[in-house]
Design a protein around this nucleic acid. Sequence first.
DNA 1: ACTAGAATGTGTACACCGCTCACATTAGGC
DNA 2: GCCTAATGTGAGCGGTGTACACATTCTAGT
Lengths: 199, 199
Amino acid sequence: MPQTSGPYHHGDLRTACLRAARELLEEDGSAGLSLRAVARRAGVSATAPYRHYADRDALVSAVAAEGYRELAEILTAAHPSPTTPDELATVALAYVRFALDRPAMFRVMFAEPCDPDNEERVAATAAITRYVRDLVHGLFPAADADALATAVWALVHGLAFLHLDGKLDSSTPEAVAAQVRGAVHAVLDALPAATRGGA
Amino acid sequence: MPQTSGPYHHGDLRTACLRAARELLEEDGSAGLSLRAVARRAGVSATAPYRHYADRDALVSAVAAEGYRELAEILTAAHPSPTTPDELATVALAYVRFALDRPAMFRVMFAEPCDPDNEERVAATAAITRYVRDLVHGLFPAADADALATAVWALVHGLAFLHLDGKLDSSTPEAVAAQVRGAVHAVLDALPAATRGGA
DNA sequence: ACTAGAATGTGTACACCGCTCACATTAGGC
DNA sequence: GCCTAATGTGAGCGGTGTACACATTCTAGT
């Protein structure tokens, strides 16, 4: 009996579940994200969420989709359209910071063996792919845009994961920033650029 | 009653658990790796493994440690000491192939929110770090070895994860190889090299 | 306004999980 | 040969995902 006097129908249980799931993720990490806990937090019986999400994975995928949207916002907020390697490094740092600031969310987004045919997820990652490719193409018009875009995304993504897993020194934000900027510059500074302005 | 006529003591339950854990990981993925399933497969009561592993995480860490060792072997087998970007791309491809061929193992190694102070794991990753740094230093003596080594590992690691998560086209081994080689070359070909031999 | 049926939420139940604890069995050092 | 430590057993607790039958409420068509 979740509520003593609440109405039988919740009103918007779907988004309430999503909200509860995100809170639990922040508080207890991925392990704490159980459908039952979500139901408890939403003030609803344990099986009610199944009316809105086929199973746990579906809920997790919905959370991940939100994460993708927020990551995209954070990246464009870091710099709307970087035109130098240094500005790109700023965006890269924002990516890594996202991973370190919200590790559980980042893991849910990338480290779960999820089904790849979830519509929301596919759309969200396609957006990131496009963003990176356009960005790289603007920065290095001479290069093979696809290959370099893949390389840049992989570089940044790898930096995020290695930091997240303690494979690199993440003791201070400054150390992280130095490594991310160093790695990005080490790789990009030698490339023939067109729009190169800063260092 | 796991065995009708087996001896009370297993003999080497520790390694039997490890072996069973690896098999379950291959068969059912990370989710299927439960202590109870391991115990069943080892022909032993559900709680017996606790004599050898403090908890599930400890077992998983032991499995991951084996994974690190095997990854190191695979890398050196791919090329003992690469001296050109193309040879390095071959090693990179071996890394990505490891991730794609044994996704559950790779995820256990890198995608689990594990405690970073597990001795075996720390030692194993330190070995990889050293390997990559020496390799990069030999290839690009002029560059900042640490920064470039970080970049290269991150690049390869990111490629592995993006492929694993379906963010890149992994439909055929050839597609994977092309992308990995393309990305590595896109990034490294422009760098001032000393020992550059091949393309 | 009434009513059928669709949507939504509840409760029960099952199998599985990690893990603790008291106990049984065995191996090895004295 | 015995005593102790190591190892394995079994019952049991609280948690989980999820299938199922049932209750309630909303909504549309009359």
